Computed example of a mutant assay.
Amino acid sequence: MSNRLQISKQQRIGLGLVISVLFIDMLLYSLIIPVIPYFTEKFQPSSTMLGILFSSYAVALLLTTPFFGPLSDRFNPNILMLGGLVCLTVTMPLVVMSQAIWQVAGAMILVGASIGLSLSPTLSSLASIVDNEGSGSYGAAYALFNMFHAVGMIFGPLIGGVLTDVMPIPSAIIAVSIVILVFIGVLGRTLRTKKQQELRL
């Protein structure tokens, strides 16, 4: 049993998708951290309300993950992951464009559901990649998973902080969402090309 994750070129594409989904999810969500002062100034919520606001994301994630997990066993997990990312890029701008505190809470719930949709298939897809290669390198695969989880959480606040210093906060979130949406299109095209190549074999 190898202690290193050794995969084929084709499996690297699948691994790249899993890592990209994880990184983008954490990047986009952690972009909200530098926006907290913006919410505080705009809506003047109490500390309790601010806590409820951000916990609504976790509540949505908690409630949707048990549904999306079995769903990823029935349908193509790649489509679910990409679909979740698309939903996330659409819902993130809603968070900063909301005009009332209840609208922000609703947008955060949609963000949590979108992350639940995209994250639910990631671990099963990662395990499938390791199984298909027969390497047994689950520890190395999951370490890679956790590493990119942390990387997304690191760069999200940094990027958000820099962008919100040079442009209005809604514009910054929308700009990042558009860039990621283009990247999702590239990922989708890459996966479609991979599928076509497999069908020819």
Rank of each mutant, 00 (worst) to 15 (best):
H149Y: 15
P157T: 10
G83S: 09
S98L: 09
S114W: 03
Y138D: 06
W102Q: 11
I154P: 00
S128R: 15
L181D: 00
F183P: 00
G51M: 10
T122W: 07
Y57R: 05
P77V: 00
V59A: 11
G116R: 03
L163I: 02
L62F: 13
P93E: 12
M81S: 12
F68D: 03
I154N: 06
I174Q: 13
M97A: 11
V59D: 01
I79M: 10
M147C: 12
S124M: 11
G116A: 05
A127D: 08
I174K: 13
I154E: 04
Y57Q: 07
Q99Y: 04
G83V: 07
L85I: 09
L123Y: 12
P121R: 01
T164N: 08
R74H: 08
G69V: 14
L80N: 00
V162P: 00
A58P: 04
T64G: 05
L144K: 06
V59M: 10
L191I: 13
V162W: 14
I52S: 06
N76Q: 10
P77C: 07
G116F: 07
D73E: 13
L117H: 01
L187Y: 02
T91E: 01
S114K: 04
L119E: 12
I174Y: 10
L191M: 15
I52P: 00
P70V: 02
I159W: 06
G69P: 04
V96Q: 02
S98V: 06
Y57E: 11
P66Y: 09
A172V: 05
T122L: 11
Q103P: 04
M153K: 06
G84M: 00
L82Y: 02
A105C: 08
G188M: 10
N76P: 00
